[in-house]
Design a protein around this nucleic acid. Structure first.
Lengths: 252, 252
DNA sequence: GTCTATATGGAGATAGAC
DNA sequence: GTCTATCTCCATATAGAC
């Protein structure tokens, strides 16, 4: 995509390889309308290469989709792991603050989506869709990101040693949902807020998400400690934590 | 879907109308692979009706998609609004607890996804995809849900009168991201947790999400109050809130 | 590694009979 | 309201020349 030398024709010294051009174009287009919303012809036309090269280089459309997904995951995950380990070292002999753990998880992503260029931007929009897809999520997210996630969850558990593991898993799910919706940059918050917030403003997300999530984790652990057995917020009575009955009960 | 009387042929007294059968089948299939991942032929075959009826009843495939989306939104939103007003009344003369506001927003959805039957389950999986789609999100979510969201945000602002509006909008975005990923039920948390948590267990989500989100809102308001001007968690020094430098800074 | 040409099947939509 | 038949176009994939 960036700096491409105009279609086919001049194969001078430094022309981008067809395989890369296909990956770049596919990334942009898949991010826009998903796997089924783009044809390989659209991709190869945008890339300025021949249709048949998708089969040659990747095997088929599905393999191309996986290759797009894998390419940048490989670059991201080592950096995120390194940042996590750095955070751990600096906190020794104690455990790191939750905010720092969450930040090590999200910052490398937010930073690249904000300032890494259009390829990264598309990539994260694609992740938003895949993460929420019953078809692709269990395949691609699991394969390319869950090893890293397991490491993060292990460190979160160190930081919350009293906390039931289930609270951590649910807290992580809420985190990844909030994060990936951010990547979709649908502009919905722009309209809702009358322009006060912009979905492209990832620095604002960076400034807030780790605080939000860390507080959420702490609340889950607190809840598990004090009200195990209680089914849901709607069934409580005290003010400030919750007030009155708010409607139907959860269980039953 | 439920109780359908087997294909075409016996048009006895109470056969489900073709229009409904199409909506039901489309809901299931769109939820699985998205708008482009299903053909109208697959839909009408699953519905046991003729292909041409999609054009006749809806105009075309895109209009069918919107109709699927609209059908249940119309049922949900009045109930959510009523629950919100009930929560407000019961809290008078004060403002409701954040947990109760969030719960009024999420409970009618979680409850139906958990116990409303397969149609509702598919519907929410579809919402998860639409909410994270740069193509459909800005159109469908905005049209069918944002009027309701604006009302919720107004009540949240009443409950957090000192808080900058931007914090509320970002807090809402994180909420809707966490909620809709839950609806996708990708089974990722099952694998990650080794079976300790199940993505189909929406009662566990109901027991946790409002606490998590309410704590997150409070943390955002606190952050805005105490550290406006600070760019991000990575740049702080105190322990427990955050510790040390964790890596690159956010802004600049 | 890249391109031409083609095989084979499916897409969405509609005119018009019933 | 529903179905038959068909129009037109596009999909993915591959065989084989260069």
């Amino acid at each position: 995509m960036r700096m491409m030398r105009r279609k086919t024709g001049q194969r001078g010294a430094a022309r981008t390889p067809a395989k890369t051009r296909i990956l770049d174009a596919a990334e942009t287009l898949f991010a826009r309308t998903g796997f089924y919303g783009v044809s390989v012809r659209e991709i190869t036309e945008a890339a300025g290469v021949d249709v048949a090269l998708v089969s040659y280089h990747f095997g088929g459309k599905r393999e191309l989709f996986a290759a797009v997904f894998q390419r940048r995951a490989q670059l991201l995950n080592p950096e995120r792991l390194a940042m996590l380990e750095q955070v751990r070292r600096q906190a020794l002999p104690g455990a790191p603050a939750l905010e720092d753990i969450v930040n090590a998880f999200t910052y490398p992503l937010l930073e690249r989506s904000a300032r890494g260029g259009p390829g990264w931007k598309s990539y994260f929009a694609l992740i938003a869709q895949v993460n929420n897809s019953p078809e692709w999520g269990p395949i691609l997210m699991t394969e390319y990101f869950d090893p890293l996630v397991e490491r993060f969850i292990a460190v979160l558990r160190e930081a919350l040693p009293e906390c039931d593991a289930r609270e951590i898993y649910w807290g992580y799910q809420f985190l990844t949902g909030a994060l990936t919706l951010t990547f979709a940059e649908t502009g919905r918050i722009d309209k809702l807020s009358g322009g006060l917030c912009r979905s492209t403003d990832l620095d604002s997300v960076h400034a807030r998400l780790a605080h939000y999530v860390a507080a959420g984790f702490r609340a889950l652990c607190e809840r598990a400690r004090t009200e195990s057995g209680r089914p849901a917020p709607a069934a409580r009575r005290t003010r400030r934590a919750t007030s009155g009955r708010t409607g139907q009960r959860a269980a039953r």
